[in-house]
Simulated scan of single mutants.
Amino acid sequence: MLRARFVFPVVLLSCLAPLLAACGAPSYHYVKNSEDKTYFKVPATWHRIDEQPLNLVVGSADADSAAATRINETTWSVGFDAAGTPSAGHLVDSGSDEPFVYANVRPLSEEQRGVVSLNMLRDLFLPVTETSRSTAEQGGNGLPGFELLRDETLTPGEGLRGVRVVYSYDFTLGLRQTFDQTAYTSDDGRLYWLVIRCSARCFAERGDELDAIATSFTVRN
């Protein structure tokens, strides 16, 4: 009889073991830049990308000027790739069907502070406003199939103002790509920026997951 008393607890623990293991694995990786008080989350299974290759892809490390060097030294950038073989190039890879998220915080120059606007924030990554798209087309750099899916002005307070835009373009490799971009400027002259890129099919299938990333992007000025 004494031996039988311990059968149920042992069986119960055996059944609960997979559940306990699952509970121990976090669903998200919480990304923070403590110095600039910037936070967001990404699924824990996504792969972090080194800052240097990201800067090369985005173009912030191309120039050799002292001003560019100074900006790069005071810029925080981070990327996460959901692809099995992660690469910084997937941020702009028009053939990728997996999501990629990129975040950047940088100071604005005195000249940029004087001209920064909500439309400039919309056009940070690709042309979104009609004026910017027209200029790109006249210069032979236009992309086909533009579609604006969301355009929201953000007023979180604390000296911040910004936008969230979601839009799509057709690319030459055949995959239609969708971009979910959030950008803020602060009264003290800093730019905070997050963009998620994924194929249009990916956005349709994983919209809730990607929206959770975008809405988690928080700046405490």
Results as ranks from 00 to 15, higher is better:
residue 12 L to D: 03
residue 14 S to T: 09
residue 14 S to L: 13
residue 15 C to V: 15
residue 16 L to Y: 00
residue 17 A to G: 03
residue 17 A to I: 08
residue 17 A to L: 14
residue 19 L to H: 02
residue 19 L to V: 00
residue 19 L to N: 01
residue 20 L to G: 08
residue 20 L to R: 01
residue 21 A to I: 04
residue 22 A to E: 09
residue 23 C to R: 09
residue 23 C to G: 07
residue 24 G to M: 05
residue 26 P to T: 01
residue 27 S to H: 12
residue 27 S to C: 10
residue 27 S to N: 12
residue 28 Y to D: 07
residue 29 H to T: 13
residue 29 H to W: 05
residue 30 Y to H: 13
residue 31 V to D: 02
residue 33 N to V: 05
residue 34 S to R: 07
residue 34 S to D: 12
residue 34 S to Q: 06
residue 35 E to Q: 11
residue 38 T to W: 00
residue 39 Y to A: 09
residue 40 F to D: 06
residue 40 F to M: 06
residue 41 K to P: 00
residue 41 K to Y: 05
residue 41 K to S: 08
residue 42 V to F: 03
residue 42 V to H: 05
residue 43 P to M: 09
residue 44 A to H: 06
residue 45 T to E: 11
residue 46 W to I: 10
residue 46 W to Q: 03
residue 47 H to N: 15
residue 48 R to S: 08
residue 49 I to F: 08
residue 49 I to M: 11
residue 50 D to W: 07
residue 50 D to S: 14
residue 52 Q to W: 09
residue 54 L to P: 06
residue 55 N to T: 15
residue 55 N to A: 15
residue 56 L to R: 15
residue 56 L to W: 12
residue 57 V to G: 01
residue 57 V to A: 02
residue 57 V to W: 01
residue 58 V to H: 02
residue 61 A to I: 10
residue 62 D to I: 13
residue 62 D to V: 13
residue 64 D to W: 08
residue 64 D to N: 12
residue 65 S to I: 07
residue 65 S to L: 09
residue 66 A to G: 04
residue 66 A to Y: 02
residue 66 A to P: 00
residue 66 A to Q: 11
residue 67 A to E: 11
residue 68 A to F: 07
residue 68 A to Q: 09
residue 68 A to T: 11
residue 68 A to W: 07
residue 68 A to K: 04
residue 70 R to F: 11
residue 70 R to D: 14
residue 71 I to V: 14
residue 71 I to C: 00
residue 71 I to P: 00
residue 72 N to G: 14
residue 72 N to Q: 13
residue 74 T to G: 01
residue 74 T to W: 05
residue 74 T to C: 04
residue 75 T to F: 03
residue 76 W to R: 03
residue 76 W to G: 00
residue 78 V to R: 04
residue 78 V to D: 04
residue 79 G to M: 14
residue 79 G to P: 11
residue 80 F to K: 07
residue 81 D to A: 12
residue 82 A to N: 09
residue 82 A to G: 07
residue 82 A to P: 06
residue 83 A to P: 00
residue 84 G to N: 14
residue 85 T to G: 07
residue 85 T to R: 13
residue 86 P to W: 03
residue 86 P to Y: 05
residue 86 P to H: 05
residue 87 S to F: 04
residue 87 S to V: 04
residue 87 S to A: 15
residue 88 A to H: 08
residue 90 H to Q: 11
residue 91 L to Q: 09
residue 91 L to T: 06
residue 92 V to E: 07
residue 92 V to N: 09
residue 92 V to L: 13
residue 94 S to Q: 15
residue 94 S to T: 15
residue 94 S to W: 10
residue 96 S to V: 09
residue 96 S to Q: 10
residue 97 D to R: 10
residue 97 D to T: 14
residue 97 D to A: 15
residue 98 E to Q: 15
residue 99 P to C: 05
residue 99 P to K: 03
residue 100 F to L: 06
residue 101 V to G: 04
residue 101 V to M: 04
